[in-house]
């Protein structure tokens, strides 16, 4: 599912982002542009982090910004942003990969999360993911 959802137009590679807020905004752009989410969803993801802390950093260097379906999801989707320079969060956490998840309801995206979890549990794949510079590099990992 990850492979079929994470199409070329949903993945971006950039040198750096000014801060974590900008990184989340940039990472969400493909979902916004293709009608998966509304602008309010992006704001909700950012205010979640401001309110509750950077719990979306799943592991060192990997973040999974998300909010609730009712915050503005039109259909289930996922996008990925990879930055060459680490983006800092409060509390010393940082990330180079941002998987933005838009869930339609509480259950439809669970397979997707399972697949992301499997990908992130594989150290070799993680290293390759963080070093990926093209969509082709990424496809080999999915």
């Amino acid at each position: 599912m990850l492979r079929s959802r994470l199409t070329g137009e949903m993945v971006q590679f950039i040198p750096r982002a000014k801060n974590w807020e900008e990184a989340i905004r940039m990472a969400s752009e493909p979902l916004l542009k293709h009608g998966y989410i509304e602008a309010g969803y992006v704001d909700a993801m950012i205010s979640n982090v401001k309110e509750l802390g950077p719990y979306i950093v799943l592991m060192p260097r990997v973040a999974m910004p998300h909010a609730r379906p009712e915050d503005g999801v039109r259909k289930m989707g996922i996008s990925l942003l990879i930055t060459e320079d680490a983006v800092l969060f409060e509390g010393g956490k940082s990330a180079n990969a941002f998987f933005v998840v838009a869930a339609e309801d509480a259950t439809s995206h669970l397979t997707l999360l399972q697949e992301i979890s499997d990908l992130l549990s594989d150290e070799e794949k993680i290293t390759k993911l963080l070093g990926a510079g093209t969509y082709e590099d990424l496809l080999n990992l999915l």
Binding site: Y55, L58, M64, H66, A67, H109, L110, L113, S117
Partner: peptide, 15 residues
């Protein structure tokens, strides 16, 4: 437990 109870916490619960 996570902020929304949907993403991070589900992934954690699997593990």
């Amino acid at each position: 437990v996570c902020g929304n109870g949907l993403g991070t916490s589900f992934m954690l619960s699997l593990n």
